[in-house]
Design a protein around this nucleic acid. Structure first.
Lengths: 212, 212
DNA sequence: CTTTATCCGGAGCACTTGCTCCTGTTAAAA
DNA sequence: TTTTAACAGGAGCAAGTGCTCCGGATAAAG
């Protein structure tokens, strides 16, 4: 393979010039500004606000991201991965499977608090589970669930879906309370986690969609 | 006091004619249609859609309700009260304080499921607790909380705020899952309720905003 | 340096949505 | 029945928002 087409897109028959330096700078500035704004105000923000804050015109923004949703997804992919990864790391530090689960929730919800767009998207994701990112998170939770169940530390019958829905649900509580009374959602987390421990008098009602 | 002004607004010095029959009919039709639409699509709905569905022109709608929010609040007051009351009734039927609490949540969340605007408003209400309706709900929960605590059936330290936030948080889960997998939120409710029972190894972290 | 393909940026378009205005209509008083 | 004040209803206005267009600027090739 000749090196003259090694650095560009190998699939494109037409030779593409390298992107201009200012274009690269601008693209980064746009993503950075969009990440800020999305975290603050959620996905309903005006595109002009993103352009303004990144010091770039509308034309520039729309050349890099032809649809607003392209930009939103780019930012979300980035932030979502980073968020899930840091929650995962918090979990693997703990040797006790139960502590791992608790640390995961604590870390995930803390990171949640300041990113409105992630909350919106995670909830939306429930209806569209094929979205990348949710799968990543699912795998983390699946593993935590399996570990805790194997150790007998998790209530029998608790599924990955239960834990995921709990995360989304608590995420909503976090968003409501974190600014004014952050202790409230912490208390709710404790209550929910205790409900996940084994030893309760009645088994959970079955989930017919979960063969097992 | 003479009876000639007894049926109108006594505070208004100008004599007001009785409202026309068609105006009364229209007002009711508007409220009815708005309730439907708000339940289906939430408060972000187009006013034209409400006008269309109630068979009334924009002018008529806006004479009865000068701002969209006036209409929304009217509907919300009606539906919210009715919803909270039916949840309260489900609770007083049970003699056991714990069953009362469980029945309350079950009933409230079931009614929740099909009313998007109530969910939105209840969450919004957290930031603006003076809103009427939330107080009504608070009192119901306060009473349930006191009863269960007095009977020793509720985990020590659980507050009305905890129970209210749990309701809002679960409400979000209900909205996400009720259409496709309604069993999921029921399971989450069971888990949370079990976390509210006494007998857990660690006390809840204190809420500094809750003097006690 | 010159050339030119690429890029920049904001004015402006198309559409939505909350709300108003105005003309013809109708219920209720005289 | 006649009169008249209230009402009905849709066209239209103003503001917001996603997106496009095109003249001017500029980085990279020759």
């Amino acid at each position: 393979m000749l090196d003259l087409m090694a650095e560009a897109e190998p699939l494109n028959p037409a030779r593409r010039r390298a992107p201009r330096a200012d274009a690269v700078r601008n693209r980064e500035a746009i993503v950075e500004a969009a990440a800020e704004v999305l975290a603050e105000q959620g996905a309903a923000v005006d595109v002009r606000e993103i352009a303004r804050r990144s010091g770039v015109g509308m034309g520039t923004l729309y050349r890099h991201f032809p649809k607003k949703e392209d930009l939103v997804r780019t930012v979300l992919r980035r932030d979502f991965s980073q968020w899930a990864e840091s929650a995962r790391l918090a979990a693997v530090d703990a040797e006790d499977p139960w502590a791992a689960l608790a640390d995961f929730y604590q870390q995930a919800l803390t990171g949640y608090a300041r990113h409105r767009a992630i909350v919106e998207n995670l909830a939306l994701t429930w209806a569209e589970p094929d979205l990348e990112g949710i799968q990543q998170l699912r795998r983390v939770i699946e593993r935590l669930c399996a570990r805790a169940t194997a150790a007998g530390l998790l209530r029998p019958g608790v599924t990955t879906d239960d834990l995921l829905l709990l995360l989304i649900s608590l995420g909503h509580a976090v968003q409501l309370t974190d600014e004014c009374r952050p202790h409230l959602w912490t208390r709710l987390l404790h209550i929910s986690l205790d409900g996940l421990r084994p030893g309760h008098r009645a088994p959970l009602p079955a989930d017919p969609d979960q063969p097992r």
